[in-house]
Design a protein around this nucleic acid. Structure first.
Length: 639
DNA sequence: CTTAGGG
DNA sequence: CCCTAAG
């Protein structure tokens, strides 16, 4: 019971103190961060698993067949991604320090001939990762080949595109490591370089730039039918949701992911390791990365070319999205730079641009190309070394984008177009009101993909395992990770409509880390600032007066229980700023002014609680705190 | 998970 | 607001 006693200061204090014994942790657990298990989540996960399995399988085949078809679209709910990532992590932890290709979703070739190694030289390396936060539109894959000498004359960059609509807080973020569906090699280059015009999609041609796109319909259908037989049902679903991730989502109205406990009961990471999966060390970093919230760059989506080949032509790290061929082989080529953009949504996109092209034209070309796939409603930004290149008039060369240039930190960003004008007009507070065109487009696309893939039903064949070969360019650590077996479980059963896609609002697009080397790139979206209203301030003060400082969780429960966007940490921070505000001259205060009266209460409560340990609670019987003659007590506040 | 502080 | 060390 809550009892209260008047805190009397010279008989004029209006400050009241309640003695509220702190409830046991166990009891407190419930409520604030309650998480439920949503059956749909599992369904989604299963679907993902299934898709992943297929995709992987697909990749296997395509890889072994010199991969000439490259367009597989796959949209995966974020939670699934996390699932995979976590699974991988588990295996990393429990297994070894081995290496894996491109992270979380490397696959282990179930049973392959011993020639694999020999062929690895020629076989494309499967490298890829996809990040899908909120409603990422793109996923990225990268296929790397060790053929620097074979490459004809292009610098090919596989650009990772990722777009996210984050404000739709009901969308589970999706991150996925996947296999690329097409590889750039001699045999495929021709194929994929087929001008778009050969497809139903109008070719984009501008400033001597060209972009190509692989036809994907066929692949999709093929994707949906083929190689399901190998899918092996997993006996256990290893769904380990990182709590940090959940934490991240906890205040976002996400449909709660299964609790860790619940999840773990499904199966533990042990099983993963028991499957003898080997994970590329590259993925280690990637994981770590994923555990950090990805931050937005200018509130937009960022796609990047994460890494480039090392000087030896090997992948240098996880999440490589850039393929760069031996510059020496480019002499014959008229200093053209080829950008290869890959993702689930963008199967394969090659963009050739002369170094003398301008950044602006590059952007336009990319927009043009991507628009044919996902529709309009976005624009492209170019990042280099962590900075956006704003000057569209500069040539690529001038901007530092050249065949021989260091493109480690090169990438693109997809930014939503609020108005068809400048994205700059996107006010933070309005970000959730982004036009629906993106949302709709995405949803539509997703729906189509899902249905096209025919995933909604019995997408996988229990009893079959999926595997993919990873011919790591760098043989020093070949990795094979096989998550599929565990992931692929049962049949996914959800309609496209069930996908946790966009709500009505959008937030700045999510980001794919531009450069995993850069610490700063491991960013995640920052919550939009929401100034405390006077009412909130008052409620906070009220609560603190009653509970004291240092019991922010209780404060939260008492006065902000239903305000998900106010965490107890926020409240604590707010209190701190309030105290600070109250202590400075009114002229120095900024923001919407807080009534002096409230600030006085803040000061009073602050001084009071700093004197009386806030954690001091009354006896078990709930007796009120005895506050008698206290000089520190609150000053009387008369209004 | 909560707190408490630094950034 | 974010991030984190501590507890």
């Amino acid at each position: 019971m809550v009892k209260k006693r008047r805190l009397d200061n010279n008989g004029s204090t209006g400050f009241q103190v309640w003695s509220i014994p702190r409830a046991p942790r166990s009891a407190r657990k419930k409520g604030l961060y309650k998480k439920t298990t949503d059956g749909r989540n599992f369904g989604a996960i299963e679907l993902l698993a299934s898709l992943a399995g297929k995709l992987l399988h697909e990749n296997e085949n395509s890889a072994s067949r010199a991969a000439s078809e490259g367009c597989n679209l796959l949209l995966i709910p974020k939670d699934m991604l996390q699932y995979k990532i976590d699974t991988v992590e588990k295996s990393i932890k429990s297994e070894d320090h081995g290496s894996s290709v491109g992270g979380a979703f490397a696959l282990e070739r179930a049973s392959e001939n011993s020639q694999q190694k020999d062929s690895s030289e020629r076989s494309p390396k499967v490298e890829g990762n996809t990040t899908w936060d909120g409603t990422s539109v793109f996923t990225n894959f990268a296929c790397c080949e060790k053929e620097s000498s074979e490459s004809k004359s292009t610098v090919s960059k596989s650009v990772n595109l990722s777009s996210e609509v984050s404000k739709s807080e009901k969308i589970m973020a999706v991150n996925e490591q996947a296999v690329d569906v097409s590889c750039l090699n001699d045999s495929t280059e021709e194929h994929i370089s087929k001008p778009c015009s050969t497809n139903a999609i109008s070719p984009g041609r501008k400033d001597d730039m060209r972009f190509y796109r692989e036809d994907d319909d066929e692949n999709i259908s093929r994707f949906s039918k083929s190689r399901c037989t190998k899918s092996k049902p997993s006996k256990h679903s290893h769904i380990i949701i990182d709590r940090r991730i959940r934490k991240l989502l906890s205040f976002k109205h996400w449909k709660p992911a299964p609790q860790l406990k619940d999840v773990e009961s499904f199966g533990s990471g042990r099983n993963i390791s028991s499957n003898k999966r080997r994970i590329n060390r590259h993925s280690l970093y990637y994981h770590d990365l994923l555990y950090k919230r990805k931050k937005l760059l200018d509130g937009s989506c960022f796609m990047n070319t994460d890494e480039v080949l090392s000087s030896e032509g090997h992948y240098r790290s996880h999440g490589v999205y850039v393929n760069q061929y031996d510059p020496a082989a480019f002499d014959a080529m008229d200093s053209q730079i080829k950008f290869s953009i890959k993702s689930f949504m963008i199967p394969e996109l090659l963009i050739d641009v002369p170094e003398t092209a301008t950044v602006g034209s590059l952007k336009r070309t990319i927009v043009e190309a991507i628009s044919t796939i996902i529709g309009r409603g976005f624009h492209v930004g170019v990042m280099l070394h962590g900075k956006k290149i704003h000057d569209d008039n500069r040539t690529l060369l001038q901007a530092g984008i050249s065949r021989k240039g260091n493109l480690d930190n090169f990438g693109f960003m997809l930014e939503p177009n609020l108005t068809q004008s400048s994205p700059k007009s996107i006010a933070p507070q309005d970000s959730h009101i982004l036009p629906c065109n993106i949302s709709q487009q995405l949803t539509r696309t997703l729906d189509k993909v899902i249905s096209d893939m025919g995933v909604s039903h019995s997408a996988s064949d229990p009893g079959n395992s999926t595997s993919v070969s990873n011919n790591n360019v760098d043989n020093s650590h070949d990795l094979d990770v096989s998550l599929t077996q565990d992931i692929v479980t049962g049949k996914p059963s959800f309609k496209s409509g069930d996908l946790p896609i966009l709500q009505t609002s959008l937030e700045p697009l999510a980001v794919v880390p531009a450069n995993m080397n850069n610490k700063g790139s491991e960013q995640s979206q920052r919550r939009t600032r929401k100034p405390f209203s006077v009412l909130e301030v008052e409620a906070l003060i009220q609560a603190v007066e009653e509970l004291g400082t240092g019991r922010w969780r209780d404060v939260k429960l008492r006065s902000f229980e239903n305000k998900d966007h106010r965490t107890y940490v926020d409240l604590k921070d707010k209190w701190r700023t309030l105290v600070h505000t109250a202590s400075i001259a009114a002229q120095q205060r900024r923001g919407d002014p807080v009534p002096q009266q409230l600030l006085d209460r803040v000061m009073a409560a602050h001084s009071y609680w700093s004197q009386h340990h806030s954690k001091q609670v009354s006896p078990i019987d709930g007796a009120p705190i005895e506050i008698t003659d206290d000089p520190v007590a609150l000053p009387s506040i008369k209004v």
